[in-house]
Write a protein that binds this DNA or RNA. Structure first.
Lengths: 238, 238
DNA sequence: TATTTATTGTATCAATCCGTTACAATAATA
DNA sequence: TATTATTGTAACGGATTGATACAATAAATA
């Protein structure tokens, strides 16, 4: 039931900052472990015969059910005082196990941080066998996270801000088709900064990476906005 | 003589892309191991009670003698087929050791990549106890490197290009005081792209991060250029 | 059916940025 | 003093971006 040392490489793990966009806010998936009061990023160990990237992908897939995700490595955290022994003991205790003090998961761990951008509405978060809940939290209202996970979230956001514009970030947080207003909201939420509607629209259109589709009639008493999607071919060329 | 398992964490190591600028070209420090034909990036293992960052810093210090260096983590390499066992065996054999097949350094390793930008002229490269030489190579004329080290170099350059402009990169590759022409050459070399002299100068000056000093009289029969240094206070504010 | 309201798409004008050219200001030499 | 190679900056024009204005709706309302 506990992860076996013989199947994994030691001293190294991964943690994932999984983000979704509700249309208004950025949300992040946080695990809560049974009877332990420990909140954590979804993470895991790397199997001996598995690429690091594949381990992370497996972890995200198991918890979200998604196959196609935008996954980016952003930083590796290697401070010697990253104390995972204490929370791991509590987590094990919450499950009714007692870990011997020389158990491999109580050793020092360096963790590789990845961020995943997913479509909020397509996901049914699924707890793994060690955690009793996995939930969306508003990125600005996180519970106290174990070890240095708050710092990991911070660093992830920094990287996403940096990658926005370079990598197809909107593509993964939005549904296939979206309005210009929704796209703008993604940019504004991630960068925590407002844009002028007309300038934003002109800039996006001039980048020539969007395909325009039919209009979206919401029933509101005003002009209906066009729906757009990212033109994959043109995005590639960027 | 060999690194001891008891003193280090396992399955994880670091490699460093150490770059210097001659005034004309980018150079990189490459190790050659004794009697093995193996060329490698300067790397190492992490001591059990040492921050990852400190381990890297120690490695760079031991090989360059420099205390103050610009060190940035850029990527962690975790493919399962990063085969370090073969080159490590050869390296050990070159030193006259035989490693038992269960020796910890022959296990799978994930490596964290860092780049270091240093002042080429201040450095006396020093071989470590396992390598018999450490030398500057032109970034475009590298020998065949072991495992995936060529890929690591590529990724480092990519990151540096990305960081140029955001982080004080010129600051570390150039001496304290430098001419506008030298600064331009750094940008051109890293980005592999030429800039127009007047535009570059205007842009740099308008960024308001340079302090102007006395002129540099080289003896050449033409107007002497000003020397500049980075204004640390103003760089901070950026 | 005409009017009203909220919103969207785009044109327009001005300010700013950036590429380019031009030219004055040297530092040493002839 | 004239010459030569560079450097520092101004000046012009085109391109980009910010700000404002306004026409074009989609549905509700009169």
């Amino acid at each position: 039931m506990l992860p076996l040392e013989s199947e994994h490489i030691t001293n190294i793990a991964y943690d994932t900052v999984i983000l979704g966009f509700t249309g208004k806010e950025l949300k992040i998936l946080i695990l809560e472990y049974q009877n332990s009061g420990q909140f954590a990023l979804p993470g895991g160990f790397i199997r001996r015969n598995e690429d690091l990237y594949d381990a992370v992908k497996r972890g995200v897939r198991e918890r979200t059910g998604l196959e196609k995700i935008h996954l980016e490595q952003f930083h590796t955290f290697g401070k010697k005082n990253r104390d995972s022994a204490y929370p791991f003991k509590k987590i094990a205790a919450g499950k009714g196990y007692t870990l011997t003090s020389d158990h491999w998961v109580l050793d020092r761990f360096i963790t590789v941080g990845y961020y995943a951008l997913i479509n909020y509405n397509q996901v049914q978060p699924t707890p793994d066998k060690f955690s009793d809940s996995i939930n969306w939290y508003d990125i600005n209202k996180l519970p106290t996270l174990m070890i240095d996970h708050a710092e990991i979230v911070e660093k992830a956001l920094e990287s996403i801000r940096n990658d926005l514009g370079k990598k197809p970030i909107g593509e993964n947080l939005l549904p296939e088709k979206f309005t210009m207003k929704e796209l703008q909201k993604v940019y504004e939420t991630i960068l925590n900064k407002e844009f002028r509607r007309t300038t934003f629209q002109r800039k996006m259109l001039s980048m020539d990476i969007l395909k325009r589709h039919e209009k979206l009639y919401t029933g509101a008493a005003n002009k209906a906005p066009y729906l757009y999607s990212f033109d994959k071919e043109k995005v590639e060329k960027t």
